[in-house]
Amino acid sequence: MLEPVMFTGGLYKHDLIVELVEDLGGYILQKNVTQSEIILLILVPSEDKDALEALAKELRAELVRAPLAGTETAVVTPTLAIHHLPHTACDIAEYLRRHGSKTNMIGLARGVGREIAQINEYETALINEHDAAVFIYGNFQDCIKHKEKLYQNISIPVVVTGGPQIEAKELPYAFDYVPSIGRVAHRAKKATEIGTLDRIVESVGRALDKTRASIAKDPLTTSPPRVMDAVREQVPDVEFSYSPLPIALNLTGVRVKLPYSRYKEEVAAVKFDEGVRLGEIASIRPSQMKEYILVRILPSSETGFVF
């Protein structure tokens, strides 16, 4: 079992951590260097976490559990206008990021209003590429219930946030409803507001656990971090991608940030030690996001083996 953790410490000697993680059979998911500081998102085998903790302590660094690491969350607002940004949407996105998730902010083209709100097929497909979505709504109960139509066709778990108290059962299409964070015009800084952000993180965490549990019933042929490692090694051009995170991890696969038309064969040809190629154990298709490559690992019931 791999445990997601976040390492925050000095740049000096951080390569010792990288080496240790590789020796233990873990993975470095993300590396962020900010001047002399470094933040690493790491997956480490849970039985060896103590060794990593001991080394982090020696380096005077901080090692915390990052329950959302290795997942991608969509933070969806009705539009990208001043009414929703920067306060609510950015606060939620940043808070999810602090817990290890990779968040994408999505503003719908026509999500505004009550009667006129709509979502199109492309937006639905784009949101469905994530592992969970957070829909940010406002302060009026009636509107929150009415605007259920925006997410009822979305197949990933949706956490809805809004101002008033509403029973979760009144929103049957949502995975969960988190109240007391409706439309606000100031930054979240009070203890109660931070508490609400914690509740969103907890709720997204539960949604992801539910997805993980359903994947466990029919496990994937291989794990996404392993695919990430293999692609990084065998498709060297990925390091030249301008994205801060050239390979984004999902629960069921990865998104490789290279143009689909030029690199699809190269990604499909990635070979594992066991002799299989990525194209045989995963579906490789164009992502809705830019022209990226979306790799979805097939479950063992389709390929007949797990490695």
Binding site: G138, N139, F140, Q141, D142, G163, P164, Q165, G182, R183, V184
Partner: peptide, 8 residues
């Protein structure tokens, strides 16, 4: 019944 909305 939108007391919350009014307050916010």
């Amino acid at each position: 019944e939108e007391e919350f909305g009014a307050k916010k």
